[in-house]
């Protein structure tokens, strides 16, 4: 299946802004993170099709995943 992965803020550094990825059926958000060399604890929020999900969330063909690192400074 194909999913669209969107990265934000510092996650784009050395990676990309938006890319399509081919994944095997029943892949989870966790598999996308592994593919991108991002640790689950580095993610502040993950949206799939605009909804807030956990890293165990199972993906479907055509999903859009948006990943944000924690931006916490003041």
């Amino acid at each position: 299946m194909r999913v669209t992965v969107k990265l934000f803020a510092t996650f784009r550094d050395g990676r990309f802004k938006v890319e399509e990825k081919n994944l095997s059926e029943d892949s989870q958000v966790l598999d996308v993170l592994q593919l991108l060399n991002i640790l689950p604890e580095e993610v502040a929020i993950c949206l799939v099709n605009g909804r807030d999900v956990k890293e165990q969330h199972v993906l479907n063909d055509g999903d859009t995943i948006a990943l944000f690192p924690p931006v916490g400074g003041g």
Partner: peptide, 11 residues
């Protein structure tokens, strides 16, 4: 939702 995970940000 936005800040519930993790102790420090990328700052």
């Amino acid at each position: 939702r936005l800040f519930g995970h993790g102790e420090r940000g990328v700052e």
